[in-house]
Nucleic acid binder design. Structure first.
Lengths: 245, 245
DNA sequence: ACAAAAGTGTTTTTCCTACACCCATGG
DNA sequence: CCATGGGTGTAGGAAAAACACTTTTGT
């Protein structure tokens, strides 16, 4: 890294969050409604600026995550997604935002904080397909975040983070089906996930059902990587994996 | 994104590059020798600060990449790797660096620029295994970059970007073997890569050899994604794919 | 008994692995 | 003709896809 021309005008650093859940049969993302200009009233990713000069990026992300979800960030899965810094992405001044991805259980309640008027879960389908206007470049960030989340399910056991502490194989399969928007064969899925060592730990308990055979309940095991991977049905991988230039 | 407390002390934004090549049978990374304090004399990733307030992150990365390699960045593969911003990573002041990954052909010549005293290719093995001291947190960045590069070869056709415009299947296989530090069966590799549509385009020409049957020469085809993926031999995936908090 | 959902078995296909073997060239 | 590397054929196994079938509950 070369010497700094310290004359560069100050650039603000922000941290944004793409927090996902599966709730009500839909793959949902947490969005806030902006309470101030610019983009006042429009949906946006929750996030904020670094609290102080000594706060690390990860610490800021964890703090925001805890604030927005009311959950303990140290017990959630989150990871850096990417950094967005086009010069004109914020009309006020140059802002570079480091975006993080997080997976939380559907029972978490979005909490509006700071400048946000409201926070809520929004189905990703309404963002991806619809023409909802979003603040800043947040549509582009959400596109990347959804694709990252989808591909994470392929080779990690993170789908279980969308489930309650005890869940059935069908619960887990529905997470996959909802996030990928693909139908999976229940029989093959069952064999696959129960065959991965340390993915699912049987609790011995069963569901009580309205009709039909009760399902065994499981907890998350210690495995984090899925091997072999659970591949999405045919459709070729997205362009975001290519990035040539 | 909430309102900014514009009182936050200025944070400098830098762009660093992890530029890889395969040369002399080794997987090498471009490093510069720092010409100024801090870490003067130590190897570091090439990079620099944004040139002006209007320069985008990608533009800065492309500019640095062209400067350091003498190549046309628009014809290379490069992508964002991650952002590093620990408060104490630069002793001078708070610096957040957005790191990019790039793959170039081994004939490219490193060019020292700006604050760097020299630029050169360094085998990744001497960095990963050795205890060479590196500037800033660049060892950590290189670890992540090497792992990203290795996994990229699994599901993309990018290995060919390390080859000359015309190359043999053996050239390509050696790229895989060198980057992964794994032995691959030449026969199965041949069948696999020649079977992927649009990966390799036959030129009709052949190598002239010292001995042995001449090999057919190929160019890169239009395929970017490898399907099905070329999986690395057994060793389980690295911890960097997990990132739980 | 029947519907409904869970879970198992079986077959087919695909793809990876391993390795025998043939091909084309230089000396 | 033989050493050297390029390329093909084939057999076995792991795992995915497709789907018939059995199990276990509520009504």
């Amino acid at each position: 890294m070369p010497e700094a021309p310290w004359t560069i005008p100050s650039i603000a650093i922000a941290v944004d969050l793409a927090v996902f859940t599966v709730m009500d049969g839909m793959f949902q993302i947490m969005l806030v409604e902006r309470g101030v200009e610019p983009y006042r009233g429009l949906p946006a990713l929750p996030g904020g600026f670094l609290h102080d000069a000594g706060e690390s990026l990860d610490a800021a992300a964890a703090r925001e995550l805890a604030e927005e979800t009311g959950l303990d960030a140290s017990r959630l899965h989150w990871e850096q997604l990417g950094t967005y810094g086009e010069p004109d992405r914020d009309p006020r001044q140059r802002v570079v935002t480091v975006c993080y991805l997080a997976f939380v259980v559907g029972t978490a309640t979005p909490q509006a904080g700071g400048d946000a008027r409201a926070a809520s879960w929004v189905p990703t389908s309404t963002i991806l397909k619809g023409d909802t206007q979003l603040a800043f470049d947040h549509r582009q960030i959400i596109d990347a975040a959804v694709e990252r989340a989808r591909s994470k399910l392929e080779y990690t056991t993170l789908a279980a983070t969308f489930c309650d502490p005890e869940f059935t194989v069908t619960d887990l399969r529905q997470v996959y089906e909802i996030v990928w928007d693909e139908h999976l064969d229940p029989r093959n899925f069952h064999r696959k996930v129960t065959g991965v060592t340390d993915f699912l730990v049987p609790t011995g308990r069963q569901t009580v059902r309205h009709g039909g055979r009760p399902a065994a309940l499981f907890r998350r095991g210690s495995a984090h990587l899925l091997h072999p991977a659970m591949l999405r049905p045919c459709p070729p991988r997205p362009a975001s994996a290519i990035q040539t230039s």
